[in-house]
Write a protein that binds this DNA or RNA. Structure first.
Lengths: 240, 240
DNA sequence: CTTAGCAACGAACACCGTTCGCCAGGACTC
DNA sequence: GAGTCCTGGCGAACGGTGTTCGTTGCTAAG
């Protein structure tokens, strides 16, 4: 039997093929390089086989990525806090942190309705607090929907920015980022101050702050906007 | 000369090759089918030639798409309104409408810092109004940044949703969308009301409203949050 | 012992973005 | 007028992609 090697000894240098192992490998690539670097051939290569072998465990690439997304979503921690504001804030940060830790997988959340038992539990917890604080149901549900969209957008943008910065060979990411923005600042500073009286004095604040600070600002501002739509205490119902 | 056809008569059935014509064709595909359907071969095919011909006018595919994005960004209208709130709202809607009209090109805005003379003019207009209304510079600049991220995220999500719905063969998009969400509503309604006392009564508002309504809610809520950070009139400076 | 089912997988299909090298024609120089 | 350079056009090819087909070999059930 010269052509066929001993079957049991062939391949699988790095473990046996299974759905979990495939998702593991895909997550490893996503975490370090992003979704676009995931290919069926590359994953299969890690198991010393061809891409066709994966299709016994996964319907197609989208299905594989959906499995990855489900795993990440299940990692989002239960938020903590006393007030509904703290709870919503904690949830936004927890979700943000979870996605930021997993490359650009967050981009798969666009157009996806979150599910899973753990997610439902988290929603129950937050909606309960909002309801108890007399936040109108529409403000509560739509507010969480909007906020989740913002969280995803910021996490995605952050990943793209980070990739641009680290491409500039070596150097600390924050430093390269600062330099990157400086280019835009200079181009804006070159504008005639007479023609742009409002723009130029705002340049410093326009460029100030890191990504995390700006994200916190967005979350807090939106929560403040929700709070502004809560009817004044004791004024909503005359009888009670 | 049997193999070589008359050079002048060959090809170009649909116009002569130029940067503008290539971008036109790419935009046509993006508007109707989305970025992923744009390929160098397909565009070249519309001009009865091969993909290599495009590289005389465009550095690569990313460059081509960047040209498309620039064109769309330049279509964003100057916002109108009396108060800064109206102005910001008008800008958010104008930007949203513009991107929604051009497929999923909005996804290219993530990680991109907007530029162009027209964009700077718009920023000048809005920042001027915010400054005149004593909105703190940080709230003004970061607020617009956050809002633009939300606008992009909502436009992108809307495109993905629309594509899912229209895939369901014929039928009006809105109807299919309602049915799509109904599936989730039913799954949530099946939860034990005892274990999820906050979730179940919120189901109707969770599922209510169309995309435009929810987008308007998000914008208005965020503007309210910005307004909450404006110091009370006459209280910011004792001397003045 | 036979047979059914299934994971494994080599080969191929139809694409993709990009590069190479050649060609034709216009413009400019001598 | 002849020669040279430049540039847009473009056929062919390279190395990649996701997916499918048809076959193999193993294992468990009958």
């Amino acid at each position: 039997m010269p052509p066929t090697l001993r079957p049991a000894a062939r391949g699988r240098a790095r473990g046996v093929l299974s759905l979990e192992a495939i998702v593991d490998e895909a997550m490893r690539i996503i975490d370090r390089e992003g979704i676009d670097e995931v290919s069926m051939r590359r994953i299969a290569g890690e198991f010393d086989t061809g891409p066709a072998s994966l299709y016994a465990h996964v319907a197609n690439k989208d299905d594989l990525l959906a499995h990855c997304l489900r795993r990440v979503v299940s990692e989002v921690p239960m938020p903590t806090g006393e007030t509904w504001q703290e709870l919503v804030r904690s949830w936004a940060f927890g979700t943000h942190n979870t996605f930021v830790a997993h490359g650009d997988i967050v981009r798969l959340t666009f157009g996806t309705i979150a599910e899973g038992p753990k997610f439902v539990d988290i929603m129950e917890r937050i909606l309960g607090a909002l309801q108890a604080a007399h936040v109108p149901p529409r403000v509560a549900t739509w507010g969480l929907d909007v906020l989740s969209l913002y969280v995803a957008a910021d996490a995605y943008e952050g990943w793209i920015m980070g990739r641009i910065f680290e491409d500039r060979s070596g150097r600390p990411t924050a430093e390269v980022g600062q330099e990157y923005f400086q280019q835009f600042a200079e181009r804006l500073a070159a504008l005639p101050a007479k023609q742009y009286p409002a723009m130029t004095p705002n340049l410093t604040s326009l460029m100030s702050g890191g990504g995390d600070e700006r994200f916190a600002f967005g979350v807090d501002t939106f929560i403040a906007g929700m709070a502004a739509q809560v009817p004044a205490e004791g004024a909503d119902r005359a009888d009670g």
